[in-house]
Design a protein around this nucleic acid. Sequence first.
DNA 1: CTGTTAGCGCATTCAG
DNA 2: CTGAATGCGCTAACAG
Lengths: 346, 346
Amino acid sequence: MSKISIKDIALKANVSIATVSYVLNGTRNVRPETRRRVEAAIEEMNYKPNDIAKSLKRQHTNTIGVIAEDITVFNAPDIIDGINDFGDRHDLHILLVNLRLDKRIGRNFNDVTAYRKYAANAVSELLSKQVDGIIYIGVHTRDLTGLIDTEGKPIVYTYGYTKDDVSIQYNDEQASYEAMAYLISQGHSRIAIISGLMDSIPSRLRLNGYYRAVTEFQLPFDPLLIKMGDWERESGFRLAAELLAMPEPPTAILSMNDVMAVGVLQAAAAQGFKVPEDVSVMGFDNREFSDYLTPRITTMNLPLHEMGYQAIETLYQIINGKTSDTRLPPQCQLIERDSVAAPRTK
Amino acid sequence: MSKISIKDIALKANVSIATVSYVLNGTRNVRPETRRRVEAAIEEMNYKPNDIAKSLKRQHTNTIGVIAEDITVFNAPDIIDGINDFGDRHDLHILLVNLRLDKRIGRNFNDVTAYRKYAANAVSELLSKQVDGIIYIGVHTRDLTGLIDTEGKPIVYTYGYTKDDVSIQYNDEQASYEAMAYLISQGHSRIAIISGLMDSIPSRLRLNGYYRAVTEFQLPFDPLLIKMGDWERESGFRLAAELLAMPEPPTAILSMNDVMAVGVLQAAAAQGFKVPEDVSVMGFDNREFSDYLTPRITTMNLPLHEMGYQAIETLYQIINGKTSDTRLPPQCQLIERDSVAAPRTK
DNA sequence: CTGTTAGCGCATTCAG
DNA sequence: CTGAATGCGCTAACAG
C-alpha cells in the first residue's frame, strides 16, 4: 500500500484535503501558487491516488468485467486484445474471469446446468467488485438467454447472444457467400462444403451463404456436395475422402474451419489429389497455422480484435447513457493464399 | 450498483450493522435466531456485499494484477489459465493489463525505452487499484531488471526475470538435453540443431543442453551442425536447406521451436528428403499446429499452465508472508509423434 | 451475545 | 478561491 494519502500531502502543502482533491481532479480553479505547492508535495512524496477510495465515493469503478468461457480457446485472446485497445484509450480497466469451460466440461455446451453455476459465480464476483459493466465472450456463438442475470448491470455478448441483450457478431452469412463468390470467380461451379456441428449458429449461417451463392450464381445444385462435420480435423478428413471418391468429385471444397481443412488436405493427399491443381480448398478462421500448411491455406479472417473493440465500445456507450450509434458489424476478410486455383479444364 | 447495503438489511432484520457484518463474515458468534433473521433479510433483499468498501477498510483487495506483454502471443493464454486455476481456489481476482507490445513495438525488445513507459503505466494503474501483488508475463524470457518499480508491492515474473525478484521458469536446458537423449535413443548420432535468436536466454540454455548431451553421449562433435535461426519459419527453411545440402547431412534436426520446424519440413520436402525416413525432425513448444502438420511433429511441451499456477502460488505465499516452499520448477515434456524415426542404416 | 462508533481515502456540498 | 464537514459501505475495536 502506498502509505501516503491525500491527507498527508494536504498537510505538507499546507492546504485542506479538499484543495488537494481539486488540483488532482481539476474540478475547480485553484490559485496557481497553491496549485504549485500541492503539485510539489505530490511529486515529493510520490503520492499515488487510491482508486478504491475514489470508487467507493464515486459509485463507479472504471473497470469492466470480462467473462471468457475459455481463454485458451483461439478466439479469446484477440477479442480481449481488442477490449484492451479501447480500454487503454478510455481509462477502463479489465477484471478478467476465465470460466475454463473447455477444461471443466469439454464441448458439451448443451448441458447448461453443468456450467450455469460457474457463470453465475462469475457475475456475482464481478457485481461485488462493482464493475461498471460486463462483456461475455463465448467459446462459440449460441443463444445464452437465461444463463445469467446481471441484475440490471449492462452486459454485452460476443460469440454468443441473448434475447434481450446487445451482442456483437460478425457477418457469418456474408462471409460464407464471399468465400463462394471467390471460388466461383476462380472458375469453380462444383463446390462442396463441409459444415461444423449443426447446432451451431455459424454453421447454419454459413450454409445460408452457401445456398445464396449457389442460387444467385445459378450453380447446379447437388445435395451430395453438402457434408456435416464436427469442427474437428478427423471429420474434415473423412468427409473430404467421401467427396473425392465421388464419380464426379467437386473441384473445390469449402471447409467451415481451418482445422477441418487440415483434414481435407490430408484426405486429398491420401487419394492422390494435388491441392490446388486437382482440387481447391478453402478454410475459415485464418488460424495462425493456416499459413504454415502446405499449401498455405486460403481462408476467411475473423475480425476478432474488432469484435472485442466494438463490444466494449458499445458497453461504454450504454454505461454512459449514450445512444449507441449502431455501427456496421465487424467484417470477415478473405485471405488469399495458395490452396485455391482454377479448376482443371476437362 | 446494487442499491441495498448492509445498513438496509440491518434495519430489516432489526439488528445493528455490526451484527450483519458478523454473520456475513462469521467473525463472531451470533445467536442462531438472530443469524436466521439476518440471513432471511439478506436472502429476501438479494443483498450483495460491496467489495470496494470492504477493500477500503481491509487494506487489501484480494485481486492481483497480471501484466501480459502481449496476450495474443501463444504463451500468455495458458499461463493466465494457470493463474485463474489457482485464483479460483483462493478467491483471488485478476486485473488484467495487456501491454500489447507485439503490436506496438514488434519484436524489438532491446529498445527498452520504447516500452518502459507502457510497463510503468501498467504498474501505476495496478498500484492505484490497490492490487495485492503483480505477475508479469513476458513475451520471451529475458532480464527485465530495472524495467519497473513496484514500490515494494510483491511481484513475480514468468517468461522473464529480474536480479532481485522471484521468477518462474521451466527447465530449458534439461528439456533440450532430453530431446537430444530421445533422438540418440532412436539411434541418431549426427544431430543438427537450429537455435533461436542468440540474445535469447532459452536459446543459450537449450544450446547448453545440446552440448551436454553431445558430451555425455560422446557424439562426434561437428560445429557445422549448429545453426543460428531467428525463431521464424523462413530461417528454419533456409538453415535446414543448408544442413541437408551438406556432403554428410545430419540424420536428425532439432529445431528450437515448432515454427522453424515447419520450415525444416518444407526444406526437407523441397530437397526430396522424407520425414522421418530420411531425416528426423523435432520441434519445441508443442504449438497446436504441430499436431496438424504432415508428419505430425514430435516436440517438447511447455508447462505453461503450471508456470502460471506456480507464479500466483508463489506470489500468494509472499503476500501472506509464508516461507515459500521452493518447488520443482515446471517441467517440459516430450510429445512423441511421427516426425522421428531411426536413421536409415547405410 | 449485541450495539456504538471510528475510521479506510476520497469527492463534494456548503460556508466563507 | 479555499476549508470544514459529511458520507460512500464496510470492519473491527470497544463497550456493554
